[in-house]
Design a protein around this nucleic acid. Structure first.
Lengths: 346, 346
DNA sequence: GTGAAAGCGCTAACAA
DNA sequence: TTGTTAGCGCTTTCAC
């Protein structure tokens, strides 16, 4: 048997007729807007419930809001991002806003543009760009079209709000921890960044900066050893292979992200080296599986859930006042030490 | 300086005026519809490019399609799902369709309903429900409203298409592999399922069935040992703790999903047991990090990317012919053996 | 406080 | 082949 041609969807007109009021009144009730008496409100609410009415978001969007917030993530496989998303959706739970996520383009600029354009076309009320790689001009273009919060990118803009973590400090925490354990030859795997304009804004670059600065602070300028790949598992694997081909191995590796550390682990295991006996390893993001038993990775905690909550706060305030000055929120990371970092074998 | 009040967005009327044609003609060009001469087409294309016009999806949705496909995932942290998503978006790359993802509700039925309702309200042209937990009546309700493909759920429906993997066979492969290695006491951690109606449809239940059946086939009916928790890392941890409290330990554990195996690893490590020396371990899904060096988990491969591609195929065919009979696609899993499974210590 | 009516940007009948 | 026009379901003036 075939489907019975779904019955026409209930509209605001149906509700108005059923409640014996005008569509205007129904609309006011829907939006909690001024100008409907309690009696009217009750009548309308009842009709809505009875008919099981749900407003058509596309139609609402043509005049007012769609009550939809678009999130662009660079990579769905990096387990750090769900933390942010959870923080965001939890904070938005009691609001009429719904979060939708772009499918993520594997750190691909073109995909990022496509995704954000698609969301603008679909009338998102606001956008969240997480660790975007597009040039600042593009971010500002988006932000001028729709209220935007940029996460994890440094630098100030007049047109969008930002929430970021102090990556410089985070990197410093790692280096200091390793130095305190007695390490001197500490290598760092970063996400390659060639564009000079982005160098001063991207968290990966700032982490590398923090690493370099901390190394110098501890008189280890000569030991600075940076390998540029990407913030992916594969990037970690390739970076570690590169490090392993050196005549003298480092005693510790600081991976710019946990997902990178995963790849490093794979490469080290493959090479018959053990962590932390042969080489200590630290990551960044303190994702769920950093805590995992057989891994137990020392990592920098960015409190993704908290970041998401801050994003929600900025979003709502920006929606209610589009012209308020832009805001920068900067959070402080903490170091979580686990079993992958120990004093170097003497 | 404050943002300069974004200029009014270009509409189809602007394009029509600029190209000196009617809006109908522009619309036809946009949709590649019949009834526009090549000359007209060229003129319109040029105007579109010159003005940088992009159609408003909400407005399109009011009469026709939104060119948007909604995907509901049960859990963004399970690394198996990005594989499916990649397969889907790759296959949709050359179409005008855009994929948007619900934020995922942690295997929570209420969140699943909210998410799918929100997507219907937002005029999705089609929906993909991945491993949904809602009762079948709910799935059919969704499918009657909008073309729907259900992934990873067994059982036939007239109103939606399905793509699923042969979970029974997958479980059998694992048990046979372990038996061949010499194991007899093989425990299984499943996702708890109490609802009898869902028991025959949910992949987790089918895997448990396959496990039981395979155990019986090998005269190991007395060794059947199932622990019910959930398909999460925590579920694996708790399940393993339960198993470890038994007077006699199994020599192998078959976790119903890789993410479960991660939790098992944590619990075993914590208890001072080593894998595979003390206990062999197998997972399901062959996610990226099953392959990871220090883990190297034996697992069942479901070819998520292929699943996604099949979903895209069904979606497009359903959109072009809403009344075609529903289709069931069933894929076959393969076993990938790695280092976590070895013969039991004698 | 309430309702009538215009219109958001697009598509689909229908005319020409 | 092309253009005119009537809506889609909602929000928003603007009368009353």
């Amino acid at each position: 048997m075939q489907q019975a041609g779904s019955p026409r969807r209930i509209t605001i007109v149906d509700v108005a007729r059923h409640a014996q009021v005008s569509t205007t009144t129904v609309s006011k009730v829907l939006r909690n807007a001024y100008g409907a008496s309690p009696a009217m409100r009750a009548k309308v609410q009842e009709a809505i419930a009875e008919l099981g009415y749900r407003p058509n978001a596309a139609a609402r969007g043509m005049r007012g809001q769609t009550y939809t917030i678009g999130v662009i993530l660079p990579d769905l496989r990096n387990p750090f991002f769900p933390d942010i998303l959870d923080g965001l959706t939890d904070a938005l739970n009691d609001t009429p806003y719904q979060v939708l996520v772009g499918p993520g383009g594997h750190n691909d600029e073109q995909a990022e543009v496509r995704g954000s354009d698609a969301m603008i076309d679909r009338g998102m009320d606001a956008m969240v760009l997480v660790a975007p790689i597009s040039p600042r001009s593009r971010l500002e273009h988006v932000a001028r079209t729709v209220p935007t919060v940029v996460v994890g990118r440094h630098g100030h803009s007049d047109v969008y709000d930002t929430v970021s973590d102090d990556d410089f400090t985070g990197a410093t925490l790692v280096v200091e921890h390793l130095v305190k354990l007695g390490h001197r030859r500490i290598a760092h795997i970063e996400h390659a960044e060639s564009d000079p304009a982005r160098l001063i804004e991207m968290p990966n670059a700032i982490r590398a900066d923090g690493y370099k600065h901390a190394m110098r602070t501890h008189d280890l300028a000569n030991e600075i050893d940076i390998v540029s790949t990407s913030y992916t598992q594969e990037g970690g694997y390739l970076g570690a292979r590169q490090i392993l081909s050196r005549p003298e191995l480092p005693t510790a590796i600081f991976a710019g992200a946990d997902i990178v550390a995963m790849g490093v682990l794979a490469a080290l295991t493959e090479a018959g080296l053990s962590v932390p006996d042969d080489i200590s390893l630290a990551g960044y993001d303190n994702t769920n599986f950093a805590a995992l038993g057989p891994i137990s990775l020392t990592s920098v905690d960015q409190a993704g859930h908290h970041i998401g909550a801050e994003v929600a706060r900025l979003l709502l305030s920006r929606i209610s006042d589009r012209d308020r000055p832009s805001t920068q929120v900067k959070l402080s990371p903490t170091l979580v030490t686990r079993r992958t970092t120990t004093p170097p074998a003497s």
